[in-house]
Simulated assay, not measured.
Amino acid sequence: MQSALRLIFPPLCISCGALVESDFALCGPCWRDTHFISGLVCDSCGTPLPGEEGSETVQCDDCLTLARPWGRGRAALLYKDNARRLILSLKHGDRAELARPAAGWMARAAAPILVPGMLVAPIPLHRWRLLHRRYNQAALLAKGVARAAGLDQCPDLLLRARNTPIQDGKGAEARFANVAGALHVHPGRGALIKARHVLLVDDVMTSGATLAAGAEACLAAGARGVSVLVLARVAKDA
């Protein structure tokens, strides 16, 4: 039966639709155009760094300059070329199925920063934006990461108190001002977060302003520590 279904519905590349060997995979050309992060990375945001991977933790210039409220961070992809196209399709192209393979890439990238008992939570959308989009891509990614890592997840741990303007086109200072105080812990989820490590999940990190707002809210509610994980990192050389 499975073989017959494969003949009728063969697996296709999630990006271009070419034939591939397994479901939810990329074909060779699309894989080469998708920049997976590996090797030496900033321990705070996951951006790739020059040099050889070793036992010591290192940070990028941005994370040395900015006081990050979270501890550690990782990213699966660089936000450019095919990765950018996939993320835009996930966010705005109604292709929620892309969260499944993306969450697997993220879980592999996050392996060094996961701790037992960690609670996985997405960066939230405001209710009006969620109503328009119909799903929160960060929540889909967080659910997949939690399942792959065997961790608990709470899709509504954080709430967005106000409908902040989109961050696109804003400089770093404006991005931080835009989301200042916009996120808070759900009043009914306080017991879940007390003295617990939290892994905040989002699709893209640029300045880190939104993740910082989420981390600050978690720490204020009693979290032991916060780490962050994104599908893609906007790097300066991107």
Rank of each mutant, 00 (worst) to 15 (best):
H132A: 15
H132G: 10
Y135A: 07
Y135F: 12
N136P: 02
N136Q: 09
N136I: 10
Q137F: 12
A138L: 02
A139N: 03
A139C: 04
A139W: 01
L140E: 08
L140C: 08
L141P: 00
L141C: 03
A142R: 01
A142Q: 00
G144F: 07
G144K: 00
V145L: 00
A146R: 01
A146S: 03
R147T: 08
R147V: 05
R147I: 07
A148G: 03
A148D: 09
A148E: 04
G150D: 06
G150N: 03
C154S: 09
C154G: 04
D156K: 05
D156W: 09
L158K: 07
L159C: 07
R160V: 01
R160Y: 12
A161M: 11
A161D: 06
R162Q: 13
R162F: 09
N163F: 02
T164C: 06
P165Q: 08
P165F: 14
P165W: 15
I166F: 13
Q167N: 01
G169L: 09
K170T: 09
G171R: 01
G171K: 03
G171C: 11
G171W: 14
A172F: 13
A174T: 07
A174G: 03
F176I: 02
N178F: 05
N178A: 06
V179K: 02
A180P: 11
L183I: 11
L183A: 11
H184E: 11
H184A: 13
V185E: 14
V185T: 12
V185I: 13
H186C: 14
H186E: 13
G188C: 13
R189L: 14
A191T: 08
L192T: 08
I193Y: 14
R196L: 14
R196T: 15
V198M: 07
V198H: 09
L199H: 05
V201E: 01
V201A: 04
D202A: 00
M205V: 06
S207I: 03
